[in-house]
Amino acid sequence: MSQLLKVTDLCKSFAGQGVVKSVSFDVNESTTLGIVGESGSGKTSLVRSILRAIDPDSGSVRYNSREGWQNLNELSAKALLPLRREIQMIFQDPFASLNPRMTVQAILEEPLIIHGLGDKSWRKQRVAEILEKVQLDASSASRFPHAFSGGQRQRVGIARALILEPRLVVCDESVSALDVSVQAQILDLLASLQSELGLTYLFVAHDLRVVREFCDDVLVMYAGSIVEQGPVAEIFENPQHDYTRLLLSAIPSPDPDEKLEPLDREGLLLE
């Protein structure tokens, strides 16, 4: 298995406050890396720095593109443009992430237009293909986002991310705003797309139950630093760090016989 992404010593601070503190990790191709942490842990800033939606202060984000290794952090906006085809993002809020004034056709076609791909009829066909891939009706293309339910909108968001045939997809809390049954469907969809297209996911989430089910590896963040990382089975079965243990003990089990214990935050001193 080849490496796709290599993040080294990535730092980002806002107003002198470090939100991402010297974070390093690797991601292998066609795997899913879960990034978990509570609010303020820096997980969103981390992935947005990788995407260059915000500019990190220091460190390198090396990406194994179709043209070889490149440090995303050093590229100009112009040099980054071809790489945008390979790295895409699925947002959290399926309401806010789609332009309410554009039809689904226009939303899905936009990435193709930006990158100058194909002519009008080809784009139309491509949109139809991708809609089928995310299991939406072909007639959806002429509708506006408000005509869809939350789960359907998220499918449109996924279609927009996938239409450029990316290799790395960042899912920023992409299922946490959805109802639990819809969430299960979207996770199924993401999993089947991964095996079909060989996608690599960076999966940001606060729900450890979802991460446990969906991810191969996991990275636990606290206050801007990684406190523990490793394969999901390893971390969930045998957590080494106090904070990971605390997080795991806080998951409410759907079995009424497994009661939550009052949490023990003592001894959890992190810098």
């Binding site: 443009l81 947002f91 806010a96």
Partner: peptide, 26 residues
């Protein structure tokens, strides 16, 4: 900072496209 504007930027849309296709109509 709206998600759909960030989304357009991440797709590689340039400033004028972001302004005239996404922000002004909104």
């Amino acid at each position: 900072e709206e998600d759909f504007v960030v989304a357009a930027r991440l797709l590689g849309a340039n400033d004028s496209r972001v302004i005239f296709r996404h922000m002004l109509p909104s």
